[in-house]
Design a binder for these strands. Structure first.
Lengths: 246, 246
DNA sequence: GTTCTAAAATGATATAGCTTAGTTTATTAC
DNA sequence: GTAATAAACTAAGCTATATCATTTTAGAAC
């Protein structure tokens, strides 16, 4: 194997960033559902949010706990996982700065349907369901936006079902890497760099296979020059060829 | 095999029912998102809906077409399917009277992500996206309800991903039959009767397997007395034991 | 009732991907 | 720099499920 060994590529230092009121303001302002609000309204909404710092691996909430809040990533990244009866982990989603998760449906008593874990040191802003609900009631366009996002997520989720029901593991892994590239990738001289700690375990959990099989297929992709990987990074070197694998 | 042969069980006659203004009114009134509106408001909303009759197998809309309307089942039942590149069909959902489908997200230009087919003769009420949007803007609680339903569907969809990623075909088929029973089942003297034309093909499409494998597993369930089936019906005779198969 | 036909069941064989176990490598801590 | 260690990789047998081919059956039409 003639993989280029030394490609650490400026690894993100996992120092937790603080959430200043101003940085929070900026994040909130970029959230789709608050985009059309005035500065003053935003300021009031900001005050309703609290924030918490989490280190790598910290659990933000656990599947099955009573779901009381909507969370927004002010900095860092978060992975959502579900656990099977026999302990197998399914990675539902990987979220980055500005994305939200947790309890999005503000009516009635519900429970978290997945576990949220900080994938790097992260700062998470939170708002409780009632407060979120009252914001939505106050700003009807905001709830249309939320609807919009939910429907997008539903689509993605159904796309994944389609993948799982009808495609081979190779297809699914190619698709998953491409999706991650699309979402988290940064262009650099080698290609599209995905710079998160993404273990074979994670990939197996996202594609419904075992780490071994994931590993094998990724090795194959590496051999034919589609991607390059190290411990905490992946580069897609040939997007168009990888797309043909779907 | 000593299956009880003659169990036609009052098959639904597939004659299309008409949608009178009054019956529509009743259906609309039961929709979660309009539940709290006054009679007069409901009356106005009803006037915005149009309706169309479909026979068994008729296509209501096709995946990829521009999505312009929200549909509500006034009578009958509808199945939603997606097609894979190699022609394999994924059955996304089976909907019954009072449920809605189509374009739920009222912002911008979108395309239907699945094909909707009448599973029996059905009457479908439709409203276009702009009209739906304006109703949602007018009644903020309505959009919270829509949000509620979307989030429920998202959960179901994620549950299915979990199933597909980590469980055996047997698990998945047991789960699917139970879910269908929950949703469409009617108690009768034999057990919980699911009275829709549900082919092995459909079940395979819902569980990500082949019709042959689905058939084999269903035969096994029949042998051990968990279910009984005929061409257009299924009865769950032993729910608790079937649940153990998940 | 008898006949007809699409759906379902079954059988035989092939294979993708899982499992288990052991080896190698990249990154971190020293 | 070197050592320690968790992640990644590899190999080989095994099993669940797919595939292809054929028979049987339920329900509809006559």
């Amino acid at each position: 194997m003639k993989t280029l060994r030394k490609t650490p590529l400026k690894l993100t230092d996992t120092k937790a960033e603080s959430c200043t009121f101003d940085s929070r303001m900026e994040i909130l302002h970029d959230l789709p559902f608050f985009r059309n609000l005035s500065h003053e309204e935003m300021h009031n909404i900001n005050k309703v949010f609290s924030d918490t710092k989490y280190d790598l691996g910290d659990v933000i909430y656990r599947e099955g706990e009573k779901s009381t809040r909507l969370c927004v990533i002010a900095s860092g990244s978060v992975k959502l996982i579900k656990q099977n009866l026999d302990g197998k982990e399914i990675l539902t989603d990987i979220l980055k700065q500005g994305e939200f998760f947790g309890n999005m449906d503000p009516s009635g008593e519900t429970f978290y349907v997945e576990t949220a874990i900080a994938q790097v040191s992260s700062c998470i802003m939170k708002i409780n369901s009632e407060q979120f609900r009252s914001i939505l009631e106050k700003y009807p366009t905001a709830s249309l936006k939320v609807l919009d996002i939910m429907s997008k997520r539903l689509k993605e989720s159904q796309e994944r079902i389609k993948q799982l029901s009808a495609n081979s593991v190779e297809n699914r892994i190619a698709y998953t890497i491409l999706k991650l590239g699309e979402k988290l990738g940064v262009e650099n001289d080698l290609g599209l760099l995905i710079q998160i700690p993404l273990t074979r375990y994670d990939i197996a959990g996202m594609t419904g296979t075992t780490p071994e099989t994931a590993s094998r297929i990724i090795s194959k992709f590496k051999e034919v020059g589609l991607i390059k990987t190290g411990r905490k990074w992946t580069v897609i070197t040939n997007i168009s060829e990888l797309e043909k694998k779907i």
